[in-house]
């Protein structure tokens, strides 16, 4: 495979064709914060928290590093005023949904995000899709999925499948950044498990 040489934060990084900027950065020991990324899963690009500045032939654009493929002479900046501002805004918006999530609170400290900037709308789920994708891609059980759309979108277990498969697995539980998943499971268990 051909090697691609490019720059991240002023450091020269070597990556192979087809890698994403995030993968290349992780390999080189440069950290880019993520929320919806998981090494066992396909890139999703849902949270946009890994947004970085990518400069190609003098043009700078903002891209999600977990999806953006590396290319020759790319110049990536993982922390700039603009990137930090975007991450701060994403955090503030997510914190209005999940104000008590530890992972978000830690990041909020780093980026100076104010968790009370927006009115609380406690849906708890931040739609990172980790549970849904882990169940589908790694476990291939499809016990949990998204339902509805837009502001009403939420995760939902399918009780028939969940009541059989979830007891011995629960591998998605530690993935959830907000514990909304555990709540959804308890709710499904109480409401529907006895039916199947």
């Amino acid at each position: 495979m051909s090697e691609i040489i490019f720059q991240i934060d002023g450091r020269v990084v070597v990556a192979s064709q087809g890698m994403t900027v995030l993968e290349a950065a992780q390999k080189a020991g440069i950290s880019i914060p993520t929320l919806c990324h998981h090494e066992k899963l396909e890139p999703y690009g849902g949270c946009r928290f890994c947004t970085v500045e990518a400069e190609v032939r003098g043009w700078t654009k903002l891209v999600a590093s977990c999806l953006y493929p590396v290319e020759k002479d790319l110049v990536v900046r993982t922390r700039s005023q603009k990137v930090d501002r975007i991450r701060k805004m994403i955090l503030e918006l997510l914190l209005s949904h999940a104000p008590d999530a530890f992972e978000l609170q830690d990041l909020a400290k780093e980026y100076g995000a104010d968790k009370d900037r927006f009115e609380k709308e406690p849906s708890f789920c931040i739609h990172c899709g980790l549970c849904v994708r882990y169940c589908a891609e790694v476990k291939k059980k499809n016990a949990i999925g998204f339902i509805d759309r837009g502001t009403r979108r939420e995760i939902s277990f399918i009780p028939e499948i969940a009541s059989k498969e979830c007891w011995d697995c629960k591998e998605c539980f530690p993935l959830c950044p907000t514990e909304a998943l555990q709540a959804a499971f308890v709710l499904t268990k109480a409401l529907a498990f006895s039916l199947y």
Binding site: G145, I147, I158
Partner: peptide, 12 residues
């Protein structure tokens, strides 16, 4: 097709 995907579409 997994039922989760069908429900995703049917509720979308």
């Amino acid at each position: 097709v997994p039922l989760t995907r069908i429900l995703h579409i049917a509720t979308f």
